[in-house]
Amino acid sequence: MRITSTSQPSPREGLTYHVLDDEALIYDARDGGTHRLNCTARFIWEHCDGSSSCDSIALKLTRNWDAAPARAKEDVLTAVNEMVNNGLLEVNRPR
């Protein structure tokens, strides 16, 4: 699935999330895999609630991290795309 700025990602079921300082580990019980999120990916993951769009997450990233809007949007789309491909997020179509 193509991730766009209006995509609303949410965590898939069967994952456990463990915070370690400013990073996080996600354990996937389906395949026993472990995924490591750096601080940016952790921030993005924590805002993937199924109702926030990638655009709105990028806006929060811009405000919180004092990041350039274009860079924040690119980071969110890249990270969400990677997390979807790794089975950590699923994307709801906007209503």
Binding site: H35, N38, M83
Partner: peptide
């Protein structure tokens, strides 16, 4: 993001 499968 990084991924791994893995007297007494």
């Amino acid at each position: 993001m990084t991924t791994a499968t893995s007297c007494q």
